[in-house]
């Protein structure tokens, strides 16, 4: 206990005695986990433009981000789930399953709006099932969603087999459409990020998400319906994974059961790099959004340097562990 009393002449006020001195404003602003991403996001292009200048073309960056966009979209919602104190490892698998169903339904000649409804509805159900396991059966979300990760992708494999299903010509090429020179998937992610950031920071619901993750029991005593909030978040993530699947398949033109295989690593990595606290209660949408761009730009550079995909996985794995270590360190330092 080396806290300095704020007013030594008044030893009676216990709150003043217990309180640590306020941190300088520059520390409050600069020492936070998001800064790690910001620093990397500044450093990375500099390094890359020295070694692989061709990977640093703005148009190229924008157009390759479309490949990260579906995962980024899900990672944004996943951030909310993590802030609320849970985690969901299954969205990449539910994306694969909903996309396979979507493709199969379209191929069977079902009209487009109905197919979209089926796809989104399935995403809703998959999210609801996760919520059922985690919120109502009170299973630990990490392990329960590992179960659904395997299960959903397995169902996709049952449905589609090892073959890939083609999409009709008119449905393909969402990434080739651009507004104001920016490809549509990038715009969707950006728009979603803005909306979710507003939801998280400017609405009561958003603040309740933080409260739920900080201390669920306290939140319940404060009258927050934490189970409802968690259910809503899991269901939203399910729906968004269906939407992300529709976006992704439009870019690829075909779908197979292994769509987005291993995507859970990248999504968790985006959230962790963006400074979301793994135990809940802290984090920001901005962080995840920036981390998604960082990952995309890094992948570009590694591709241009013709690194093997496995080598890249290697780097992502290390990055995941390092980013949680730094985030935890910063939070533990700034907490007291």
């Amino acid at each position: 206990m080396t806290t300095e009393p704020m007013s030594p002449t008044d030893p009676i006020a216990p709150s003043a005695l217990d309180a640590a001195p306020a941190r300088p404003l520059w520390q409050v602003i600069l020492i936070r986990p998001v800064m790690m991403t910001v620093v990397l996001l500044i450093l990375e292009p500099i390094v890359a433009s020295v070694f692989w200048p061709q990977s640093m073309d703005l148009q190229y960056i924008l157009s390759t981000f479309t490949l990260t966009a579906p995962l980024a979209l899900m990672a944004l919602v996943l951030t909310l789930v993590i802030i609320s104190g849970e985690i969901d490892l299954s969205p990449a698998s539910s994306m694969a399953l909903t996309a396979c169903v979507f493709a199969a339904v379209l191929q069977a000649g079902v009209p487009f709006p109905l197919a979209v409804l089926v796809c989104v509805g399935l995403g809703f159900v998959l999210g609801l099932f996760n919520a059922f396991l985690v919120v109502y059966l009170r299973l630990p979300s990490l392990i329960a969603t590992i179960g659904t990760l395997t299960f959903y992708r397995g169902l996709a494999q049952v449905l589609a087999g090892d073959a890939s299903i083609k999409f009709p010509e008119w449905y393909q090429g969402l990434n080739l459409v651009s507004v104001l020179g920016i490809p549509v998937p990038d715009l969707i992610v950006t728009l979603a990020a803005i909306l979710l950031a507003l939801l998280l920071s400017a609405t009561i619901f958003g603040r309740q998400i933080y409260q739920t993750g900080t201390n669920e029991i306290a939140a319940q005593h404060a009258g927050i319906r934490t189970r409802l909030i968690k259910t809503a978040l899991f269901v939203t993530l399910g729906v968004v994974s269906a939407l992300a699947g529709m976006m992704f398949t439009s870019q690829l033109g075909t779908v197979r059961y292994d769509l987005g295989l291993g995507g859970e690593l990248q999504m968790v990595l985006m959230a962790m790099l963006g400074g979301t606290y793994i135990f809940g209660g802290r984090g920001s949408i901005l962080g995840t959004f920036l981390a998604a761009w960082l990952l995309s730009i890094m992948t570009n550079a590694m591709n241009t340097a013709s690194w093997l995909p496995a080598t890249q996985f290697c780097l992502l794995g290390v990055l995941l562990i390092v980013s949680i270590i730094i985030t935890n360190f910063i939070y533990s330092r700034t907490q007291r």
């Binding site: 990490l142 392990i143 590992i146 291993g262 859970e264 690593l265 968790v268 962790m272 793994i278 135990f279 093997l308 496995a310 080598t311 890249q312 996985f313 290697c314 780097l315 992502l316 794995g317 290390v318 995941l320 562990i321 949680i324 270590i325 935890n328």
Partner: peptide
Amino acid sequence: VFRLPAIIVTLGTLYLYRGLTFIASGA
């Protein structure tokens, strides 16, 4: 050492070790 949840750490090393396998074998 870092008091991290094992599931996240081993998710990271899952990909790390897999990548090392590729590097060691030259794919």
